[in-house]
């Protein structure tokens, strides 16, 4: 999945060096209950942005806003340099073609088997069936799930569903991947294999991504490990190195309480943040 066929606008945009995703004073609430207030941050090209925060803090809402699945009450969201507020529904679908999303509970289509779930986007785009099949196999082998191709979601374990969901998100060769709690509800060992996949995706294709997690351990694994492409496994970055493109965003009660690099987070003086990281 290394080579990406890019539209001219996209390569032009990437050359401009603007952030891939940008939030500016974004607020949203539901029935009088404020979920996000005045949130601003940006995600640069090639960055892995990890979103941390207590449950119910609005992380999933933020991610849906980024994909245009929800509309903010105020503020501006720019994806690939274009404001979502200024987009028509049709442009929105065009933009989503460049974004892969992994939902919190996988959100696989129950009525379709694994192959059709993964192929869904390509089927919608009327890609040639032979190419679809080849790309489904490629995506499934990336997530190491070739054998489950004919199974239905109800026959899969939680970890396998998450893998299918990742395969479905990356099959379109997206420029931005949104992972909503990819390890949520999984046991530690399965979680680690999922994080390894995220890491592999990051290091193989250098795709920009935004990842929500409630497990700090996952976050620090991403910051301190790299994928060894010769031996096909992840390993710690030598000499206690830290991946420079991994950055953090911490949300609490709808506000950004931290926005910065790994070391800044681990050396924070903020009492709430300190306690949260412990």
């Amino acid at each position: 999945m290394a080579e990406t066929v890019m539209s001219p606008q996209m390569s032009e945009f990437l050359a401009s060096g603007q952030p891939m995703l940008e939030f500016e004073n974004v607020s949203i609430g539901f029935e009088g209950h404020q979920v996000l207030s005045e949130v601003s941050f940006s995600v640069a090209h090639g960055e892995t942005r990890i979103l941390l925060g207590p449950a119910g803090g609005g992380k999933s809402v933020l991610m849906k806003l980024a994909n245009g699945l929800l509309e903010p009450d105020s503020g501006e969201i720019r994806v690939f340099g274009r404001s979502l507020q200024a987009m028509k529904e049709r442009d929105m679908y065009e933009m989503r073609a460049h974004i892969g999303m992994v939902f919190q509970e996988s959100a696989l289509f129950d009525s379709l088997n694994v192959e059709d779930n993964v192929a869904y986007r390509l089927e919608e785009e009327h890609v040639d069936p032979q190419e679809i099949h080849a790309r489904v196999l490629e995506a499934l082998s990336f997530v190491e799930l070739d054998k489950a191709i004919d199974k239905y979601p109800s026959e899969l374990s939680g970890g396998m569903r998450r893998r299918v969901s990742i395969a479905r998100a990356i099959i379109g060769r997206p420029d931005l991947i949104l992972y909503d709690s990819p390890t949520g509800g999984l046991d530690p060992i399965t979680s680690m294999t999922i994080i390894e996949l995220v890491l592999k995706q990051r290091d193989v294709s250098r795709t920009t991504c935004l990842l929500i997690t409630h497990r700090l351990q996952d976050a620090f694994t991403l910051a301190t490990h790299r994928y060894n492409m010769q031996e096909h496994h992840m390993e710690p970055i030598p000499n206690h190195g830290i991946d420079p493109s991994t950055r953090f965003l911490v949300l609490n009660e709808g506000k950004v309480v931290f926005d910065g690099a790994t070391l800044e987070l681990t050396h924070t003086q903020d009492p709430w943040l300190k306690e949260y990281i412990e």
Binding site: L69, M101, F103, L108, R168
Partner: peptide, 11 residues
């Protein structure tokens, strides 16, 4: 189960 959102996200 967010399948409707997933559908929108998939275009």
């Amino acid at each position: 189960s967010e399948q409707i959102d997933a559908m929108r996200a998939l275009g």
